[in-house]
Amino acid sequence: MKPVSGGTPAVTPLAAARAFDPERLQQARQLALKTKQDVADAVGVSAAAIGQFEAGITPPRADTVEKLAGYLKVPAGFFAAGRPRVRLESDNVFFRSLRSTTSRQRKKAISFTEQVWELANALERHVRFPSVDIPGFAGGEIAPGTFSPDPATAARQLRQAWDLGDGPVPQVVRLVESRGIVAVLVPMVEDEVARIDAFSTSAFNRPVMVLSPDRADDVYRHRFSAAHELGHIVLHGGRVAGTADIEREADKFAAEFLTPRAAMEPRLKTRLDMADVLRVSLEWGVEPKSVIYRSRELGKISEATARRGYIRLNQVGVHHEPVAQFPGELPSLLSTAIELAEQRGVTISRLASELAWIPAHVRRMLGSQDERPRLRLVD
């Protein structure tokens, strides 16, 4: 990245009302996990009026904009049109699991991903990002025929294009970022977005993947999630998200990308040796159960032997390595970009002004918490 060579003055509620962008209200409401009725009750209008604001039928008055800003915790200027944004449709976002998430959680995740793009786009006005280095990728899609429709073959093709050979991938997240993919880690596990686990889209001018440590906080599972989302980016542009078959395809891509057949066939044993399973897990950066599954998939062991292996793993337990202990698996593209931008005087406050966000929200999107101390009144 290299610094390249603005801020935006504060927009008053009156100016925001005159230049009101209906989609900004919807985005802010979905990020806050609020219904139209919730917002209506808070600002003193009807739910139908909120619907009309979001549909662009009528704009809110200046005093209503001020109340909306206060309730949804955004500056009044957030609602003004004129800043770059891309509308993301739900069919273009690949969620790991739809059964365990609500529609409101998914809508929040979509709005969150839109804002990841906005942050990256704002930073790219000041810092030169790596070019997207995925064969055939241009304008938010991969040219048909670039990759095989077979997930394992596509994984081998990408490994070859990235000159990875057949060895382990030392740092999956650092690798995808170096190839121009924007990755972010949802910083608070209690956040509704974090509960969705991982999701991605290739609908923007550069792909975006949103990762979250699961409750086990296991770096091996985290690496697989990143490789799974990479599979979606490579395989599924133009496909409708949310079907079981494409999730299976992304899993197959991830397995071949992390543990290529050419290396695994001579490495894996034809009997279940748990000590060796753990060695392979450590060498290749994958979960022990993935090693057992891969052994079964490649015909090294039987289905019955694999089941016994899973039972033994459950009995002895597996130590989970926290993601935070592996810097190469923590997204750093955006945070590095802001460090470079600061060399040109582009502070987080200035970036927040350009985006019409509050500074704490910029910090959160960069993966850090608000640095201000938490205070409370003395009883």
Rank of each mutant, 00 (worst) to 15 (best):
R24W: 02
A244L: 10
P60A: 02
D214N: 15
G7A: 13
H361L: 13
A304C: 00
R294A: 06
V193S: 07
E283S: 07
L268F: 05
Q30K: 08
L282M: 06
P207L: 10
G238E: 11
H236W: 08
L298D: 07
T259C: 14
L230R: 01
V132T: 13
T58R: 15
F94I: 05
E23T: 10
K300W: 01
V127H: 09
E229G: 07
T8A: 12
M188K: 13
E256S: 00
E342C: 00
G140M: 08
E249M: 11
F95L: 08
V86P: 00
F129H: 02
S302F: 04
L185C: 15
Q325R: 14
T153M: 08
R29N: 06
L298G: 13
F199R: 05
L25N: 06
W162A: 05
P213W: 06
A360F: 12
R99E: 15
M1F: 11
R83E: 13
G309W: 09
L333I: 06
D273Y: 05
G165W: 01
A183E: 03
I233L: 15
T259Q: 12
T64F: 01
E256G: 04
K73S: 14
L185P: 00
V93P: 09
V43H: 05
R376S: 11
S111D: 03
N205E: 15
A69M: 06
I358T: 14
W357M: 07
L164A: 04
G167A: 14
L14K: 10
S131I: 09
R308G: 13
A32C: 08
A194T: 02
I358L: 15
R279I: 03
K67N: 08
V323D: 10
E297C: 00
Q343N: 00
L88H: 07
R294S: 06
A17D: 10
A76I: 11
W284L: 09
L119N: 14
V11L: 01
V362L: 05
V286T: 10
V43W: 10
S290Y: 03
A216C: 02
R312D: 14
A356D: 10
V219L: 03
S148Y: 01
S131N: 10
G145I: 08
R248C: 00
E329F: 12
K36N: 11
V74H: 05
Y293T: 12
I246R: 11
A352T: 02
M264G: 04
R350D: 09
P130V: 13
V219F: 04
E229F: 02
A324P: 00
D218P: 09
L98P: 01
